[in-house]
Design a protein around this nucleic acid. Structure first.
Lengths: 335, 335
DNA sequence: CTGAAAGCGCTTACAG
DNA sequence: CTGAAAGCGCTTACAG
């Protein structure tokens, strides 16, 4: 492939000038020279080598993203929004999938370090991911879920506890007296906040409705349709099955929806469901799913902005607004 | 960050040897020297700079993938399988999303060229994508869908026409006498093959059942749940609505499922549905969707293999086996 | 406004 | 088995 030298030669100038033209700086170039360079470049189909540029300039203009499963639509939508935002800043988003495997997450981190990404965005499988290597090399890292502030990592997230409280309270407002929560596996900060919100809503409800008892139970499941379907199918077959289920991800909510179908239960007449994430698919579920909608675009735009423009020198923890999108799966009237 | 020179210095050797150690070649290194290098590297947290390596070695060990929408689960599953395969060959998969925008696909192609990827895998928005730049630079390209062989691009795909024929025939075997096809937009090779298969099944059925008339109609829709839902909702509200619909993607099939729900139609009692792609979600649809399952893993493994090991010097067109996964949406007994 | 040259951090013939 | 050095293709002070 043609190099800057080839272009310079054909244009009768130096490689420095070719660089100035293609980068619009840092020095000025006379209009005539610029024309000659551009013409030569077009003739030779010149495409600057991004590797050489990155090596020389000391930055790659790339950002790494690690998600647990890119086939999960929430992460797909997230990746899409992040890529749009990165592109708007002329950065490349490198998407890596940890496939639910902690070791693979660690491998991807090392690989990103080797590729000298300018920043990384992480949806971690660990409650306390080891980010010391990034810290050592001064590579900014952003985590897109709750994380213990003591870990010293920046996070951009909605308030899971408040959202879980609202979701549960909404189910309680419908009058359901037996509510299940399908949480994720493990004691991550996210899982703990979901639980805290769930319990807070129950406590408040008990306080306001003396004498009324609501049965509540939490069960864990891997975050996948298949796992949620399996666990919920068994759960809903029990005689004292819950009347409503709060799922901590949409992916699991779809599994619960399926489990209801398997058990011949109507939604919402026999079982109410609320999901979490607000993926586009929830609108087209049968019936449409009520869910906590995350502001994916806003979080994504801010994440990229923080990584490419206003790199914080100490950890930041920004909270974003969520909305409870009411649809028929919880018992609300279809709109 | 520590460089190879730092490591060489600490280990009391040269950068060449450091390189030999980290690449296991191309020269041998005595066990003692190797030990010293490894120890020094560990002490300095040395991580070879992949950019410098690529620039020097003349290959990036990276493969570019462009899909129309990474939030579409089919492409998510595909990306995941391709990444696994690439990783197994120590390659990086760079995922790019054209967001249904042809110009963005073109931009991504240029960007891949600039990043000097070793190969590209494409799910194109164009019927005849302009791949001349890759050809000029000798970058192998693989397209994962039907494409006119005259275009000179390699393709890895299932036989869409045969699959469409089987799917349609299956619906006809159920005895439905009015069948709709929800195709993609535009006259791509894929859309044409879907149509050809659909019509072939109808023709054969007519031949074998003289006197029996089956109504058939094709309608186009953008490949998204929302678009398919909108179009199918109107279609199913018509008095002579189809009794069964063959959707050329699962994503559209989910939209049709939703449209049936909106129209108060039961699936499969009032409307039978068959999808295409075999995404994992189809298993957990309500009711589970019958679909043409693509061998995603096999196609992905082969694609990576062709790009990193047996780069073909002239276009290849490999056909993979698909399966019709029967579930209840078409009227088959739930298994 | 422009050019010659050093340097980014590797790899790899070339010597020894 | 090991080292000195050229080179990959850019960017960017340094001169002029």
């Amino acid at each position: 492939m043609a190099t800057g030298r080839d272009v310079a030669q054909l244009a009768g100038t130096s490689t420095a000038v070719v660089s100035y033209v293609f980068n619009n700086g840092p020095r000025n170039v006379s209009p005539e020279t610029r024309e000659r360079v551009l013409a030569a470049a077009a003739e030779l189909n010149y495409q600057p080598n991004a590797l050489a540029r990155a090596l020389s300039a000391g930055k790659t203009s790339s950002i790494g993203l690690i998600v647990p499963n890119i086939a999960n639509p929430y992460f797909g939508e997230l990746a899409r929004a992040l890529e749009d935002a990165a592109l708007a800043h002329n950065h490349l988003l490198i998407i890596a999938d940890s496939a639910g495997n902690p070791e693979q997450e660690t491998r991807h981190c090392a690989s990103f370090l080797g590729r000298r990404v300018d920043g990384v965005i992480l949806v971690s499988l660990f409650d306390n991911p080891d980010l010391s290597a990034f810290r050592r090399e001064n590579v900014p890292v952003l985590v897109l879920h709750p994380i213990d502030h003591a870990h010293g990592v920046s996070s951009l997230t909605i308030d899971y506890e408040a959202a879980a409280r609202d979701a549960t309270a909404h189910l309680l407002d419908h009058g359901y007296d037996s509510i299940g929560m399908l949480n994720g596996l493990g004691e991550t900060a996210g899982a703990q906040q979901h639980r805290a919100g769930f319990e807070a809503a129950l406590a408040r409800h008990a306080e306001r409705n003396p004498g009324v008892t609501v049965r509540a139970e939490e069960r864990p499941a891997e975050i996948s349709r298949a796992a949620a379907a399996r666990i919920a199918t068994a759960w809903l077959a029990e005689p004292d099955r819950p009347r409503a289920i709060y799922s901590t991800t949409d992916e699991q909510a779809f599994g619960v929806l399926y489990a209801a179908h398997v058990n011949g239960l109507r939604v919402p007449e026999d079982l109410a469901i609320v999901g979490f994430d607000g993926t586009e698919q929830t609108e087209f579920a049968v019936p449409p799913l009520t869910t906590i909608a995350q502001p994916i675009r806003q979080i994504s735009n801010r994440a990229i902005e923080l990584l490419v423009r206003y790199v914080p020198d100490s950890p930041v923890h920004e909270l974003f607004a969520y909305t409870l999108t009411r649809r028929s799966s919880c018992g609300c009237e279809p709109s």
